[in-house]
Amino acid sequence: MGTLVLGLVGLVGWMCAAFVGGPLLLSRAHWPLRRPRVAIAAWLGLVGAGLLGLAAALGWAVIAAVRLTGADVADSVTTSMLAWTGLTAAGALASLVYVRVEAMRRSDDEADAVLLLLAASTLARRDAGGVTVVQVEAEAPVAVSMAGRGCIVVSSRLTRELTSDELAAVVAHESAHLSQRHGRVAQLARLSSACGPDVAGARWFARCAPLLLELAADDAAARRVGRPALTSALTKLGRLQADAGMLLRAARLAAHAA
């Protein structure tokens, strides 16, 4: 009984460290913006560790409650209460996750349907290292990809504005989003903030995920096609759309090179 309570307290501490403490430390650190991919992996690791702790605590409490029947009455009442509380909490969490996932799936399905229509109305399609690049007639300088589709939609305006090297850099950036499964990571980040407690550490990744994912894709693209092409694509589009984010991403690449 004593070990059980102690063990459960330990596991709850472990979960707090994984879900709140770890992310809080990451949020204070300076290196995540320099090594975005490592930061993403670290966060995923923390989430995994936290969920493992949750499963272990639940399993332990339930097994202890099942085994204790017939022993000291006070002990078995406390233990089964712990187990039932844990099961209720887990059930509530599971139904919350289910509801959030369903809500997210609706907007994902809508986006997916639109992307499919776009892919069908293509001017030209070609293969770029395993992904299909689809060009559509549109005046917005846009490149967009969708998780699970293996397809990148590029607007005709974008291909007009950029040189072929710059366009290759944009495609490499989107390919990195696809191959590193950034869509799934972004969904998980959104889900975690929709289900988790409203604590600074727990929300850190959800807030930073868009930035870290863009930077991770930039790094992968720079490795593949070289920094100059990506930097000039970012600068050109950043100026065209007066977008400080893209200009800063270009500056970050330049700073790395220095």
């Binding site: 986006a111 967009v144 950036h173 930035l211 984010g245």
Partner: peptide
């Protein structure tokens, strides 16, 4: 394309080059 990238509650699975910083 505008609807896809401009939507307020955009799908998290959608990834743009311009990002959404």
């Amino acid at each position: 394309l505008q609807a896809l990238v401009g939507s307020r509650d955009r799908s998290a699975a959608l990834l743009r080059f311009a990002g959404e910083l």
